[in-house]
Measured scan of single mutants.
Amino acid sequence: WIARINAAVRAYGLNYSTFINGLKKAGIELDRKILADMAVRDPQAFEQVVNKVKEALQV
Rank of each mutant, 00 (worst) to 15 (best):
P43R: 12
G13F: 03
K24P: 05
V53T: 04
V53I: 05
R10M: 09
N21E: 10
V9H: 00
W1V: 15
V50M: 04
V59P: 13
S17H: 10
Y16I: 02
R32K: 12
T18C: 13
R10G: 12
L57A: 08
D37Q: 07
Q44E: 12
S17F: 15
A11L: 09
V9P: 00
V49L: 09
R41D: 13
D42C: 08
N51H: 13
A39N: 05
G22E: 02
N21P: 05
M38P: 01
I28K: 02
D37T: 13
A8D: 01
I28T: 04
I28A: 05
N15Q: 05
A11V: 14
D37K: 12
V49G: 00
K33M: 12
A45C: 11
K33R: 05
N15A: 06
V9R: 00
G22P: 01
N6F: 01
Q58D: 11
L57C: 07
A39E: 02
A3L: 04
N21T: 11
N21G: 08
G22V: 02
A45D: 06
V40H: 12
L14M: 08
V9W: 00
L14P: 00
N21K: 09
E29F: 15
D42Q: 10
K52D: 06
I5S: 00
N6V: 02
L14T: 01
A26C: 09
S17T: 06
L23P: 00
I28V: 09
Q58S: 10
Y12C: 03
I5Y: 02
A11M: 13
W1I: 15
K25G: 08
V50T: 04
A36T: 03
D37W: 09
I28Q: 07
A3D: 13
I20R: 06
N51M: 11
E55R: 08
K52W: 08
D37M: 12
Y16A: 11
D31F: 14
N51S: 09
I5C: 02
F19H: 00
D42A: 08
N51G: 08
A11N: 12
D37I: 07
R10K: 14
W1P: 15
N21R: 12
L30A: 07
D31M: 15
V53S: 07
A56W: 08
A3H: 05
I5D: 00
F19E: 00
A8C: 04
F46H: 00
K33V: 05
L23I: 12
V53G: 02
I20P: 00
I5T: 01
G22F: 03
Q48I: 13
R4I: 15
I2D: 01
D31W: 08
P43V: 11
G13H: 11
W1C: 15
R10D: 05
F19C: 01
R41A: 13
D37P: 02
L30S: 07
V9Y: 00
L30F: 11
E47N: 05
R4D: 14
K24N: 08
V40W: 12
V59R: 11
I28D: 02
V40I: 11
N6R: 08
K54T: 07
K54P: 01
I2N: 01
L23W: 03
M38D: 02
Q58C: 13
R41F: 09
K54D: 01
K25D: 06
G13C: 11
D31N: 12
N15C: 14
P43T: 11
R4V: 15
A3Y: 03
N15H: 07
R4F: 09
A56N: 07
A39R: 02
I2K: 09
V9M: 03
Y16W: 02
D37N: 12
A36P: 05
K52G: 08
A7Y: 06
I34K: 10
V49I: 11
T18K: 12
V49P: 00
W1L: 15
V40K: 13
R4Y: 04
V50C: 13
Y12I: 02
A56M: 08
E55F: 07
K25L: 11
K24S: 08
P43M: 07
Y12T: 02
V9N: 00
G27F: 07
N6K: 14
F19K: 00
A7R: 14
I28M: 14
V50I: 12
L23Y: 06
D31R: 13
A26M: 05
L23T: 03
I28H: 04
